[in-house]
Design a protein around this nucleic acid. Sequence first.
DNA 1: AGAGAAATTATAAGATCGTATAATATTGAA
DNA 2: TTCAATATTATACGATCTTATAATTTCTCT
Lengths: 212, 212
Amino acid sequence: MARKVAAKGRARFRRETPEDRRRQLGEAALRCIVKHGNAGVSVRQIAAEAGVTQGLITHHFGEINELVAYAFDIMAEGLLQSLLKAVEDAEPTPQKRLDAFINVSFSPMLFDRDVLGVWVVFWGLVLHSQRMSSSQQNEYSGYVAAVEGLLADLAADEGFAIADIRLTAVAFTALLDGLWLAWCLNPASFKPDEGAQLCRNWVEGLRRGAYA
Amino acid sequence: MARKVAAKGRARFRRETPEDRRRQLGEAALRCIVKHGNAGVSVRQIAAEAGVTQGLITHHFGEINELVAYAFDIMAEGLLQSLLKAVEDAEPTPQKRLDAFINVSFSPMLFDRDVLGVWVVFWGLVLHSQRMSSSQQNEYSGYVAAVEGLLADLAADEGFAIADIRLTAVAFTALLDGLWLAWCLNPASFKPDEGAQLCRNWVEGLRRGAYA
DNA sequence: AGAGAAATTATAAGATCGTATAATATTGAA
DNA sequence: TTCAATATTATACGATCTTATAATTTCTCT
């Protein structure tokens, strides 16, 4: 029989692989941030949310900032994958793919106040932490690159000119983020469908040579 | 002689009008937020920054959230006034006025990481506080209304159509905010001048009927 | 000059925070 | 089955936080 198992023979805690536990803690951190914003970034709250004791966070991450940065990474990665999957599931024409990208951007999966709440906390940290800043740069460049690919394909297919494709992708990204931000802060200002239409209008400007 | 003045005859503190003191505390709060982000939102830090004791904040604002909301109001008001002044100082044609608006938006006064740092803290609170949310709605609607006026004047002057002027102003506002956010989080991604150019491109799309 | 109103300080209480340390339980492998 | 590695808990410490209350100081007004 096992040497030191609790009286009833039932283990008092589960021993997880570091990888699994780190992910559990990261997801618990995200839930705490959703619930309480910046106030949710706390060793004690996150440990309670994950159902473990505080020491475990120190053990796996050292300082709490490292956990938050990790949480940012898994969330950013997940969202980008969702976006790209929606694009890949669309019919393989540049028009349909860009349309799918716009539509999923304004779907409840992304157009969600809870999601913005997490990002706002991250942004606040990015401005004061080198570690968070490099994570954000990585995430941002991947996102812009995806947009750039969509726009370049459309321009090639339809034969219109874009002077600086990277900058143009930056602008479209900014429009998406700006609409997302505005709607989440004030959902009465416009409807998600209207936001998607404004993006299609932007693309129409692109077609008409406004960025040539 | 005065009854209870300190030995040297020098007053140990100044008695200010509530209005003045509230403003001093609000400005101290902004400096703390610039320096430390969310961590700067603290009765003790703000009181120290303003050179007073903690109790004074309770006395003038009750709870600290009220002070932060007040700080948001004075900052938003100041920025909007600066924007509008730049517009009024421009030559009185719709083109020059819109240009002035774009240029000042990308000037160091607004295109500033410190300014965004304050804003990000506010956004985080807006998502979790009714009081902050109503302040933000007020600020946002004033801002969009200003943009709407500029765009409407341009459209009338040049004779092009805009289907929904309010929504179009929302889009332009979102583009400005999105570029501001992206640059502040990652100043290497583009130069302020390039951001201004992207806004002018957006206006060019407007001229070409993309929002008709 | 003096008194009263109110701005300000001074002080304290209790909660929560991050991190360090030592003790303990679980699990894979010998 | 036993052992050893280490994941996990348990506990403690000092700092900082918000808020409440009472004492003190300033300043205006008569």
